[in-house]
Design a protein around this nucleic acid. Structure first.
Length: 581
DNA sequence: AGCAGAGGGATTTTT
DNA sequence: TCCCTCTGCT
């Protein structure tokens, strides 16, 4: 099959078929990054004859891993043993298990880790209200070592936490990376794939970068794909600088830039690149309409306008007339093609209310952690304890469980050993029955889906998280989500709400990263892009009047129409009650 | 142990 | 503003 037959442009084709050592693909928004990645995996296996299981592709979320795996297997046409596609953590865990066997510890999820940190804090005399900050600090110390500002209490807490983990034979998420790296460095030949590909490289942090270096095959077959302008996870240690490090540490690396964008029309692209002060990308979608930015006096009016506008767009009556640019128009794909993006999830509240008031189906992506359900949480603990009957962390889990269920420990042990022969779905159902647990309907459904996709899951929490994707991309509903959550997604119609100074950019956050975040938001839209702000917004009980985001000043006039908020003369008289005297 | 009231903190998020 | 912790009281 030729590149043209696959629908690849010249640069994409070069990236897919590159055969000379390390490759760095710099791929702007909508330039076909995922196509390149999947086709390149296919190329390595099919055309170069590399055994599929010796190809390792790393993504940042399980969701992305599943998507890419699905696309590769479509290309390969049902190969028996596919390439390994997963997150750093998933790969590290299986690597550790493969190499350590019985000595592998039991991985715990974030909830469990926090519980252990709070115990360590207790020992160290740190007030529990600082749990969040301390948990973050502990993670930072583990990944990057202590820094001079770290107090004695914090350091003590850290070692107490490490002690708890080791005493109980447990690993937290960070340990997976740390231990895998240690093992790789002890024995550099071990576990190296024949080809390594890393997606979203702008999101790697230091340890992940080190892992890439350590895993990189001696064949030099390393591909990293990323976009420094979309690096928005600095708060957890990611930095676009690692793209530069890659070029330095792999000096023979070829750099290919994908510059043709197939998603955003030129105007949106130009606006976005101006915000981050980058060089332009060329759109293959024509000039497109201007961005409409509009101010409102308060978030409720802002939300009401967005809802009204969505109604109009889905009704479709006036759609043709609105689409004034060179963009080919046609019916929108309905509500699933519409997204409202914002800086913080709290802002979804007002929007959601306005949509409900108009009867517009919508889904919020900031789903609650399903583990907040007590019964599911307990089921998860039991699951882990049963699975741990074969590994190391058993005593600890039994003790905890016994505590939690107020059962004597021996009795709990008996219950668990009764369940020990079971696995998968059957084990789960048995746990529900034995502990008299009942789950909300949406979790039941999620679990059903999860077991279908993964009948013998490695870890319970990953199973739940995969199953509980309450945000279903194809669903016939408008999407409400943070700009972070929108990364990697695309919608015909995008609203970016709350574009106010202090919100976007947020407080004292790194302005550069805030600009990149806005860039990500702006480049999600393929047809219509609206920006809104509110003159007054109540935050934590305080009325903030940040005014329109300074970022809008960087968008040249020809690309955007800005409509100031109309002051509302009509002051609503205070009304005690509808049926009052 | 359990509750009432004070007080402080309140992004973004994956594994 | 609202929610979670901590404290002190019963």
């Amino acid at each position: 099959m030729s590149g043209a037959e696959k629908g690849l442009n010249a640069a994409q084709l070069r990236a897919v078929t590159h055969d000379q050592g390390p490759l760095l693909v710099v791929a702007g928004p909508g330039t076909g990054k995922t196509r390149v990645l999947t086709h390149r995996i296919f190329h390595i296996i099919q055309d170069r004859g590399v055994a599929p299981e010796r190809v390792l592709a790393i993504t940042f979320t399980n969701q992305a891993a599943r998507e890419i795996a699905a696309r590769v297997s479509t290309l390969l046409g049902q190969k028996v043993h596919g390439p390994v596609i997963g997150t750093f953590h998933a790969w590290a865990l299986s690597f550790l298990r493969r190499n350590l066997g019985e000595a592998a510890r039991l991985p715990i999820d974030e909830r469990e880790a926090s519980a252990l940190v709070s115990r360590a804090m207790d020992e160290a005399g740190i007030p529990l209200k600082d749990l969040r900050a301390t948990r973050e600090a502990v993670s930072r110390i583990k990944l990057a070592g202590p820094c001079p500002e770290d107090g004695d209490r914090l350091l003590f807490c850290f070692s107490a936490y490490q002690g708890l983990l080791s005493r109980h034979g447990l690993w937290d998420f960070d340990d997976l990376l740390v231990e895998a790296l240690r093992l790789l460095r002890e024995d550099p030949g071990r576990g190296r794939p024949h080809a390594l590909l890393v997606d979203e490289f702008q999101d790697v942090n230091r340890i992940q970068y080190e892992l890439v270096r350590a895993i990189a095959p001696s064949t030099g077959e390393v591909t990293v794909i990323g976009d420094p302008h979309q690096s928005i996870y600095g708060f957890r240690g990611a930095s676009p600088e690692f793209l530069g490090c890659f070029a330095r540490d792999f000096p023979q690396a070829t750099v290919i830039r994908l510059k043709t964008a197939y998603r955003s029309p030129q105007r949106f692209l130009d606006a976005a690149t101006r915000v981050i002060g980058a060089e332009g990308l060329a759109s293959a979608r024509g000039e497109g309409p201007r961005i409409l930015a509009r101010g409102f006096s308060c978030p409720e009016e802002e939300a009401a306008w967005i809802a009204r506008r969505v109604d109009e767009l889905v009704g479709g009556v006036s759609f043709e007339s609105l689409n004034s640019g060179g963009c080919r128009s046609g019916p929108l794909q309905g509500l699933s093609g519409i997204a409202v993006l914002y800086r913080i999830n709290a802002m979804g509240e007002a929007i959601s209310r306005a949509f409900s008031a108009r009867g517009i189906p919508h889904q919020r992506a900031d789903r609650k952690d399903p583990f907040e359900d007590r019964d599911l949480c307990l089921a998860g603990r039991v699951w882990d304890a049963v699975r741990a009957m074969h590994t190391g962390g058993r005593c600890y889990l039994v003790t905890r469980l016994a505590e939690e269920c107020s059962l004597p420990e021996p009795e709990m042990e008996k219950v668990l050993s009764d369940l020990a022969g079971l696995s998968g779905r059957i084990l789960f159902d048995a746990i529900l029955a034995r502990f008299f647990l009942s789950l909300p309907l949406f979790i039941q459904k999620a679990m059903e889906k999860a077991f279908e996709a993964d009948p013998e899951p490695v870890s319970f929490s990953s199973l739940v998280r995969e199953g509980a994707d309450l945000f279903v991309p194809g669903m016939e509903a408008a999407g409400l989500m943070s700009m972070h959550a929108a990364k990697g997604l695309e919608f015909p119609v995008v609203f970016i709400a709350g574009c106010e100074n202090g919100v976007l950019p947020w407080g004292d956050s790194d302005p550069g990263e805030e600009r990149r975040l806005f860039y990500v938001g702006l480049t999600r839209a393929s047809r219509i892009l609206h920006i809104t702000w509110a003159e007054r917004r109540i935050f934590h009980g305080r009325t903030e009047r940040g005014g329109r985001s300074p970022f809008l000043r960087d968008i040249p006039e020809g690309l955007i129409t800005i409509e100031e908020a109309r002051p509302r003369p009509r002051r609503r008289p205070r009304q005690k009650g509808l049926f009052g005297p």
